[in-house]
Amino acid sequence: MAVVTALPHDAEPIAHAPMSYWRAVGWRLARDPATLVAGAVLVCIVLAALLAPWLAPYDPSAGSIRLRLAPVGAPGHVLGTDEQGRDMLSRLLWGGRMTLVAGLTPVLVALALGTVLGVLAGYVGGLTNTLVMRTMDVFYAFPAVLLAIAISGALGPGLPNTLLSLSIVFVPRVVRVAESATVQVKGLEYIAAARASGSGVLPIMRHHLLANVLGPILVFASTQVSLCIILAAGLSFLGLGVTPPAAEWGLMLNTLRQSIYVNAIVPALPGVAIFVTSMAFNLLSDGLRDAMEIRA
């Protein structure tokens, strides 16, 4: 067979080699202002939470009865004070730590556990698949908030219980996505080719399967972070999360709720913080999904 060495006349010469996948993703992300802004906002929020001990002007739990519910812009308290006279800016900075931990940990746990269970169920199939997936279906019998309340409500308040109950909420979701992605990829010809060429189960999983299912799983997990933040703060709002006097955005919203008739702006601030954080995560995951060209 003759080997074509020269391009036909009318073919356009290729200016440069095609970009690798991740370079292309980065190239697309760099041209997406909404995602970049969301990313920058998130970096600021995370830094503010990490550096709270140095950034906060006051001790977040030290209040003063004489300075209760000072308005935004009060001298010495830029964002006012809460119902116990504690500095709002300091409490918001410290509160971000709790909310971020409670919002990210369950999704990370779900990512690890859910991927393993889902890929296993999808790849092995048969009875294992039925067993795993039907068990996961049971958790789908509850709307997310209700499942979290059921478990947290029984276990009682506290950060560890919140993390546990939210992890249980998110694991089944990741399992579903991981399983369906695995089943899809498993049916592709190159997996059959790898198997025919004598590859073992583990190398196929590592090199061929995981590489192709991790993208959709990661993107899905990133969409769940904002929901997890809202749920975590919501549990504290109901009195099931972090216990007082700790600073946490949902808890602050709950305790300040009674004060809206005295000062309407300050009680709304923790909610603004939750809103901005969850929106930034949503925009970031949307941008990530578009840039990685994953349809979900």
Binding site: S226, I230, A233, G234, F237, G250, L253, R257, I260, A264, P267, A268, P270, G271, V272, I274, F275, S278, M279, F281, N282, L283, D286
Partner: peptide, 18 residues
């Protein structure tokens, strides 16, 4: 659409009350 899925609805309720 993005605001709708990002907003903590309990906070939105408080804002509506205010």
């Amino acid at each position: 659409a993005v605001i709708g899925v990002s907003v903590p609805h309990y906070w939105a309720g408080i804002i509506l009350i205010i």
